[in-house]
Design a protein around this nucleic acid. Structure first.
Lengths: 222, 222
DNA sequence: TAGAAAATTTAAGGTTAATTTAAGGTTCGT
DNA sequence: ACGAACCTTAAATTAACCTTAAATTTTCTA
């Protein structure tokens, strides 16, 4: 998760930066509107914290330009003044949330996380197939609710099958996805992997189509 | 609830002290900046009332130093003059609210309570995982209650893991967070760091998932 | 500012779990 | 029934990780 902070006040900027980093974000800090505008247009961020009173280009202008360029990352606006007028202008320009100084650093964190959560809410992170669940964000795999430990390769294979549920996937396709293109023709790695997955997640999860490939199916529970 | 009052005017100090005590707070009063700075750094308060015109060290300096040491307790500033300039300086230094003399003692109480409410509402200051605690505001780490000294990198790594408890974090993710983007692919820095953390905080705290990453787990005590 | 101390990085050898290989058995389609 | 494709198991191999210590860099202190 990468966050852009546009804030000219060095102290506030540092405060926010360290707090965000501690919370586990990758943080990029710039100190004026020009740099902010450029970075926001040329790199991709999961959220932006934007001060309004900035040197060179005003925060509102920066925000408007981003939105004109169809950049839709969530933006939290910071401002020194807490006037009705400012708030309206900010939200009109496309801000997602608004915070006026002085603020608790923890509150900034809370709001940013809320924004990111809200923004990423569109994707469905956890795939499911019968009794097995696969969380694409954390790579956690569960069978009937209890987590199952998988190795890197097992995980890679399950991930691919999960993303192509119901399709019949050839062994070549699996090898090419799990490894990087190169593969031996005479090796039973895939069979061994399938076997281990079946042992861990239930024999009927992966159906084999002789000569064609494998298919992830909802097992008939019994 | 413990409140620190830093105020050189004996009469004002006594007034505030008795008012706060009546309201049910534990109050500590000191009369110059030096004592204030020390106490604020070595004890934990739920809020601070800080006069700006102080002997030995100016109030702003005291506040700045606290913030530099990552002490984030809410601070209400008192000042004799009500100038725009002073207010800005105070807020820039990290104050949370501002009150100019003369003031009603009732108002001081009201503002302090507002600050405490606001601060406690949004902060989740101390993360815990089994026997280890991590205070996000002071960066203090404790194992079974006793403070453990960690280096900057150790702290960075622990902080990241603490904020993502239970998740499996890849080595790349750790490097990208601890360092700023750039990293060598052939270096065992992460392994060495994990090793040192395990030595200091217990071997079973960090679980390794071969080929995937590391995971912070509650150690099974034994 | 030099010297000392601490922190960080590098390096090397040992350990272990994951992956691959291999070998023999099983199933399925024709 | 026969061969090919697949399954299963276990041993062999490999790569990831651990541990330690020395080398280097940074920070502290006199």
């Amino acid at each position: 998760m990468k966050i852009l902070v546009v804030e000219d006040d060095q102290q506030v900027a540092r405060q926010i930066e360290s707090s965000l980093k501690n919370a586990g974000y990758v943080v990029e800090v710039v100190h004026d509107g020009e740099e902010g505008l450029y970075l926001g247009n040329h790199e991709s961020f999961d959220a932006v914290i934007l001060d309004l009173g900035l040197p060179k280009i005003d925060g509102i202008k920066v925000l408007q330009q981003w939105r004109n360029e169809n950049r839709h990352m969530p933006v939290l606006i910071l401002t020194a003044r807490d006037t009705w007028r400012e708030k309206v202008v900010g939200l009109r320009a496309g801000a997602d949330d608004y915070l006026s100084k002085p603020f608790e650093i923890e509150e900034v964190l809370a709001r940013v996380e809320a924004l990111i959560r809200r923004a990423s809410g569109h994707s469905k992170p956890v795939l499911t197939c019968g009794p097995v669940e696969f969380d694409t964000t954390t790579n956690r795999v569960a069978l009937n609710g209890t987590t199952i430990e998988l190795t890197a390769l097992e995980l890679g294979m399950l991930s691919y099958l999960m993303h192509h549920q119901g399709e019949v996937i050839s062994k070549t396709e699996l090898t090419e996805h799990i490894y990087d293109q190169d593969f031996d023709r005479d090796s039973n790695v895939i069979e061994v992997l399938v076997n281990r997955l079946r042992n861990k997640l239930g024999a009927s999860l992966i159906k084999t189509h002789r000569g064609l490939g494998y298919q992830l199916v909802e097992p008939d529970d019994r």
